[in-house]
Amino acid sequence: MFSYNRLLFLIDHLIWGILIVVFVFFIFQSEHFLTERNISNILAAAAVLGVLVAGQTFVLISGNFDLSTESTLGLAALVGVWLIVPAGTPTNGGGIFMNPYLSIILTLSMGALIGYAIGCLITVGNMHNFIVTLAALLIIRGLMLAFTEGAPVSGFNNPSADVFYWLGHEKAFKVPGFGNIFVAVLATGLIYFICHLILKHHKFGRELYAIGGNRDAAEALGINVNRRIRQVYMLSGILAALAGWMLAGRVVSIQPNLGETFIFTVFAGAVIGGVSLQGGRGTMLGALGGVLLLSTIDRGLNLMQVSVFWIKVIQGSIILVAMLIDAQRVRLQELSNIATSEKKL
């Protein structure tokens, strides 16, 4: 029997179908695709992207944007590494040889502080979130470049720093068929689980959906909207810093442009996963689907040796298709509303 509701359900979970189709497609395209090494790589790449998308999902659900997270990620990686490497010439560390645990705390606090500052500018300063986070994107990136004078920071042969690199670098265990599972993948999985609990089963999440759905109503019912928005940006900043810490363990040296243009992929992941740019809509499960799909496509095209230029074209097209599907979703929703009200008459 045809029913709009059934169709809506299908569209809501379409992402998983697409993921399977894409996966099978790549298996036939490249013999290297279904190898333990490749699967392990897809998951590791998805881990860093996933953490950023998780933060962005919260921001988007509350009806806001955060363009700045790619810069916060870069700065966190840079500062984190700089704090732990020994003193020396700038190109070979030039750091301050700090206790790595302390550096982790400082790095995450820096992310929180950046997010809090952004939140204050938006809520107290009454500025538009797009402008504030765009300015933050530029300022933080500029600081990174100024700080390093454009040179990379490295110094990874420092054994006391192993705890710092553990998150991005360490293999947790091996799963036959999936290869080595990195600590980063487990951490991201845990973050998604906690974020899911918060959105679905905690008052905080419920309030974010309300704010994104009807800010005026949320305010009238006594929700401290501005405070929640500051908290959401803080969370986004912390997660961006965490992603930076994670990424630092996967690269040989921190380039001052680390993470540049990553924000497009982050938005693509969230939107493809069904998180609405209009606010008030989206789930962690959907966002996870978006992240896995993008990472899979990225790796698959790489293995097929498609040029990076075409990868961009393909990514852009995927976003358009996702938006097209979303637009149909809204239309279907309206049609199904009409259908239900006609049934009542």
């Binding site: 959906y209 005026d216 109503a217 949320a218 009238a220 019912l221 929700i223 809509r281």
Partner: peptide, 24 residues
């Protein structure tokens, strides 16, 4: 009861009723 009702369209009826004073 406000004139414009102050409802969140994206939430369920129950979520709207309890908005701001959820049972935890």
């Amino acid at each position: 009861v406000y004139q414009d009702l102050k409802l969140c369209n994206n939430l369920t009826a129950s979520a709207n009723v309890f908005l701001g004073r959820e049972i935890n």
